[in-house]
Structure formats: structure tokens, C-alpha cells
């Protein structure tokens, strides 16, 4: 189960692609990191928030026919690694595209979608029983859509 506190904590990055940058080496991170793993101690207190564009390119993808719990209604769905224009790579669904429309190298842009719905009583579940919290976050569509 994803608790409300985690949803709240991750909202800025999940909702609007807020990452951060090490001002020592200029490396950009998403999701944001406490310290830069390259500069380590030198980066303490020198990580600054950065608004990422949410635009990127498909590095690779797969089609999921055996869905994770909570994704039954979307199956089959495309799961891709997307390289953001600012550098970081993220794993995310590509939605609103037919299986034949997606290609390695396709330009994509972010949209806000429902990620999962929690059932009451702490159990993950299908389309949800309507009593749990809803998690929203980023997915991608092909550029030119949405």
C-alpha cells in the first residue's frame, strides 16, 4: 500500500517533474536526490530544485500483457524508459498510443494520469473499491498529443 504521506512527499516530482541539480557538477537528478552521488560531501547544501520540461525520447520499451496489480484495465500497456531532455532517465507508461505507433527514439511529453487507486484496508487492488486514496503522477504521450 502507498500511504498518503508518501503520496504527499512525492507530489512535486510526480505531479510536475520537479527534479534537482548539483551546483558543483551540474548533474540533473530525477527524482530529486539529497546529495549528488558523484560529488558526495561537496554537494551537501548545494543541490537546487530544477523544473524539468517533461519532454524526452523513448530509449527502449516493452509491451506488458501480464499486468501489475492495479493495471488490469490498461492491459496491454507500453512501459518505456524515457530519457528526459535534461538528462535523467525514467521508467513510465506511454499512454494514448497504439502498440504500432511507438518506436525507439519517439519524442514524448508528460501528462498527469492516475497511477493507482488503493483499496480500503491497506490492500492494493484492480480498479479499486472506491474507498482508498488515489495516486496521481506522470505518464507520457507521443509528442503532438495532449
Amino acid at each position: 500500500m502507498v500511504g498518503p504521506s508518501r503520496i504527499w512527499r512525492e507530489a512535486p516530482s510526480r505531479y510536475r517533474f520537479l527534479g534537482n541539480r548539483c551546483t558543483v557538477c551540474e548533474e540533473v537528478y530525477f527524482p530529486p536526490r539529497q546529495i549528488c552521488p558523484k560529488c558526495r560531501r561537496a554537494s551537501i547544501g548545494r543541490m537546487e530544485p530544477i523544473q524539468l520540461s517533461g519532454n524526452g525520447e523513448v530509449v527502449t520499451y516493452t509491451v506488458v500483457y501480464d499486468p501489475a496489480v492495479g493495471h488490469e484495465l490498461l492491459t496491454p500497456y507500453i512501459l518505456a524508459i524515457v530519457k528526459l531532455d535534461e538528462g535523467p532517465r525514467v521508467t513510465s507508461q506511454i499512454v494514448g498510443a497504439g502498440l504500432s505507433e511507438i518506436m525507439i527514439g519517439s519524442r514524448v511529453k508528460t501528462v498527469l494520469r492516475k497511477l493507482r487507486e488503493e483499496k480500503g484496508g491497506g490492500e492494493d487492488g484492480g480498479s479499486g473499491d472506491g474507498s482508498g486514496v488515489i495516486t496521481y503522477g506522470y505518464k507520457f504521450v507521443l509528442d503532438g498529443q495532449s
Binding site: V95, V111, L112, K114, L115, S127, Y136, S146
Partner: peptide
């Protein structure tokens, strides 16, 4: 809407 869309996601877009 797709199964992962609702009033919140459409309003946001």
C-alpha cells in the same frame, strides 16, 4: 477517457 483519466487529470491538461 482512458481508465487512468478522470476529472482531475483532464482539468490539469
Amino acid at each position: 477517457p482512458g481508465p487512468d483519466e478522470d476529472t482531475i487529470t483532464m482539468a490539469t491538461e
